[in-house]
């Protein structure tokens, strides 16, 4: 009952690959946006806030459809990526990673932003009075102090990516060994109760582990700050 078929192993491996890919794709942008949201004092901040959180409330199928329009070989981004990098997004695991990255982006930004907000902005001032430029101060003071929150954001985004279904199936399809992640495998094997249960159990275990890890990381960040 508990030995996985080769197709299930493929789905599991692919889910990890897509999750890692999604985290790597979104991390630089998430750090930047989180920093701006944590430090920026501007009346137009709400606009950025809305844009960032949109994937959280949009039906994933709609997110997937919009991504499909952008990344299709004839779409603006898809065309550029294919001509310049020879990279095809639609119906490849990259598509699954991009879909997962967009859907998990708000969660990652939220965790990283909280971590940046916990760092006293005057520490950056101290760094600048000691001769560090803004970027230098960010790299050597703010980011190291927020590292646990950044890691928590990555873990959270990874977990969310493992569960991504709606946007993924729109952009990447449901190809065994290429784009069929755990949720898509569950969807395809509907009816084979044993398989569905095994995959569902794995999903629950992974999600719970990731949430525990990110919670633990965020707690450590807070207790350190008060020291």
């Amino acid at each position: 009952m508990w030995s996985l078929s080769s197709e299930e192993w493929l789905a599991l491996r692919l889910s990890f690959q897509v999750g890692l890919g999604a985290v790597l794709v979104s991390l630089p942008a998430a750090v930047l946006v989180a920093y701006v949201l944590a430090r920026w004092q501007s009346r137009s901040k709400w606009l950025l806030e809305v844009l960032v959180n949109l994937p959280l409330v949009l039906p994933p199928v709609v997110t997937g459809y919009l991504l499909l329009v952008c990344f299709a070989p004839s779409g603006p981004l898809g065309h550029a990526l294919e001509t310049w990098l020879g990279l095809r997004i639609v119906l490849t695991w990259w598509g699954a990673a991009v879909a997962a990255a967009v859907v998990s982006f708000p969660l990652m930004v939220r965790a990283i932003r909280l971590a940046f907000q916990a760092v006293d902005p005057r520490l950056e001032m101290a760094a600048r009075s000691l001769g560090a430029g803004r970027l230098d101060a960010f790299w050597t003071v703010t980011l190291p102090l927020a590292r646990r929150g950044v890691l928590a954001g990555c873990v959270l985004a990874f977990a969310r990516s493992l569960g991504e279904f709606g946007a993924t199936i729109m952009v990447a399809g449901n190809i065994v060994g290429e784009t069929q992640t755990i949720p898509l495998a569950i969807f395809s094997n509907w009816g084979a109760l044993g398989e569905v249960w095994r995959l569902a159990t794995i999903s629950v275990a992974l999600a719970a582990a990731a949430l525990l890890a990110s919670e633990w990381l965020e707690r450590r960040q807070t207790s350190r700050e008060s020291a």
Partner: peptide, 9 residues
Amino acid sequence: FQDHLLFPH
């Protein structure tokens, strides 16, 4: 600064 602002890390 009044409250030292040493880099805690």
